[in-house]
């Protein structure tokens, strides 16, 4: 075997191993959600498919799953939109308006994104209790906007850097304000980047756990990761079928989004990191 063949073999083996590693647990989740009993891997047991778990997760009001999902989508959606808009404003300032200390600002924001979330939650808990906002949407949306901003800013900066400065000049000549230029001219041009950032900010907020765990107490604002983590059956048993059905319903939209827009996501994820 020459080097070329060895390499080819290695690549295919590697690809197969990668697929197995990444998809194995995911498929296990799918199967368990569809199995009557979670013990279908045991020797004497068989896999008996059923939709019961999905039915109970989606239609039984008492598990509140649908409510958690709605909370999650609304909270992450609002957070992502606001975060991306604020980041676009900031990125516009940093890339066009010749801000003194632009680079340090970016680095400081990056540094802030490295703070462990556990060092925020006790203060946020007290703040939201004092405001009477515990277990409400704003209690999560406001921190989530801040939480996703560093990421959004970095990605937006990397995209806006690529939009030619001439567009601004043309806009200025036409007498547009800077804000108008950003909204009417620059953002439409950078629309793919805007979308990628939105998607990433949404996924980051959607997957957040600790803040949601600390600041919510029930279905009024509880998000789906917390809901699934604390999911219990009627008397506290671990209802594997329902948990995995819920996990599937939760992850399928995110996974589909990810698969559909993988190029954009990868671009967005890597832009900031590789540049730094």
């Amino acid at each position: 075997m020459n080097e070329r063949q060895v390499k080819k073999l290695l690549v295919y083996l590697g690809a197969a191993a990668t697929l197995l590693f990444c998809l194995g647990p995911f498929v296990y989740m799918l199967l368990t959600g569809l199995a009557t009993e979670p013990d279908f891997l045991r020797p004497a047991k068989a896999f008996i498919p059923t939709w019961d778990h999905y039915h109970s997760v989606l239609f039984s009001e008492t598990v509140h799953f649908v409510r958690y999902l709605i909370n999650s989508i609304a909270i992450s959606g609002i957070s992502a939109v606001v975060s991306v808009f604020i980041a676009a404003l900031g990125a516009y300032a940093l890339t066009r308006l010749n801000i003194p200390g632009g680079r340090p600002i970016l680095l400081i924001v990056l540094g802030i994104s490295m703070f462990p979330p556990v060092s925020l939650i006790s203060y946020l808990y007290k703040l939201m209790s004092a405001l009477g906002w515990m277990n409400t949407y704003p209690a999560l949306i406001l921190p989530y906007i801040a939480w996703t901003l560093p990421l959004s800013l970095w990605i937006m900066v990397s995209y806006l850097e690529q939009v030619p400065q001439e567009l601004d000049k043309a806009g200025l000549v036409d007498g547009c304000s800077r804000l108008k230029i950003l909204v009417r001219i620059i953002l439409p041009v950078a629309a793919p980047g805007l979308f990628a950032t939105l998607l990433l900010a949404f996924i980051y907020a959607f997957n957040e756990f600790l803040i949601a765990l600390m600041l919510t107490t029930d279905q009024a604002a509880r998000t789906i990761p917390v809901g699934i983590a604390l999911f219990e059956g009627l008397h506290g048993q671990v209802a594997w079928g329902e948990i995995m059905a819920a996990a599937t319903v939760t992850t399928i939209p995110v996974v589909l989004l990810t698969l559909l827009f993988q190029r954009r996501i990868i671009q967005g994820l890597t832009r900031g990191a590789v540049k730094a």
Partner: peptide, 23 residues
């Protein structure tokens, strides 16, 4: 394959924890 490796990344860590609890 590149798309598939994004799947574990897109799943909330808390849900991943549940999956592995069963594993």
């Amino acid at each position: 394959v590149r798309a598939c490796i994004l799947i574990p990344w897109a799943i909330p860590a808390a849900v991943a924890g549940r999956i592995f609890q069963l594993v």
